[in-house]
Computed example of a mutant assay.
Amino acid sequence: MTDTVLRTRVELLHLEGKIERWIRFGHVADEEILDRRRRAFWFRPDSVFAFIRWAAGDHGTLVSRIDILRACHANEAYTTIPGVAPGGEVLLRANGWAKVERVLQLIDQVEALGVQPADACPDHWRHIHNRLAAAEEPRPYTVRRHAAWLSRRSMNR
């Protein structure tokens, strides 16, 4: 099995004012330009990334969605997501512009700490997903929590 088989592929698209698919954060392992409007990014297993999908019709926004995903290993179960092959572990999913905008603000808060969102504890993204689903305010990510995550992660390696 080659390294390429183990990667998660995300196809990005930009049709001005109609369809936009982009990555908000993540450590891209490889990139391919398909044409003027399409690119593909590949992520290694365990990479965390945010994939945003937006589409509009004649009467306004049809789809506004953000998924924060973890790229899976070949033997793991995954959820299929349009534009993501084969799929990924869903850490957070938000639909509707108000929720997507809130998630983007929370990503900005993580970055304000000097932490790359892709390197933040995956449990933080799950926490945000669950709190937003319950219409509750998520706890903020902190430098202390990030240090605990890095310590825990190093012990598991």
Rank of each mutant, 00 (worst) to 15 (best):
T2L: 02
T2F: 02
V5A: 08
V5N: 00
L6H: 00
L6G: 09
T8P: 08
R9C: 13
R9S: 11
R9I: 14
V10L: 14
L13H: 08
L15H: 08
E16P: 01
K18D: 06
R21Q: 12
R21A: 08
I23A: 03
I23K: 12
R24G: 13
F25M: 12
G26P: 08
L34M: 14
D35L: 05
R36C: 04
R38G: 03
F41Q: 05
W42F: 14
W42N: 01
R44M: 10
D46I: 08
V48Q: 11
F49D: 10
A50N: 06
R53M: 07
G57I: 05
G60Y: 06
T61I: 15
T61F: 08
V63D: 09
S64D: 15
D67R: 09
I68T: 10
R70C: 12
A71F: 05
A71G: 05
C72T: 15
N75C: 04
A77E: 12
A77K: 03
Y78N: 03
V84H: 06
A85S: 15
G87S: 08
L91H: 04
A94R: 13
G96W: 07
G96Y: 06
G96C: 11
W97H: 13
W97L: 11
A98C: 00
E101P: 00
L104K: 12
L106A: 10
Q109H: 14
V110P: 01
A112T: 11
L113T: 01
V115N: 06
V115S: 04
P117D: 08
P117R: 01
A118Q: 07
A118V: 02
A118P: 00
C121P: 03
C121S: 11
P122Y: 09
R126W: 09
H127W: 09
R131M: 15
L132S: 04
L132P: 01
L132W: 06
A135N: 14
R139G: 10
R139H: 10
R139P: 02
Y141W: 14
T142M: 04
R145Q: 14
W149K: 02
L150R: 15
R153W: 04
S154H: 13
M155C: 08
M155Q: 15
R157M: 03
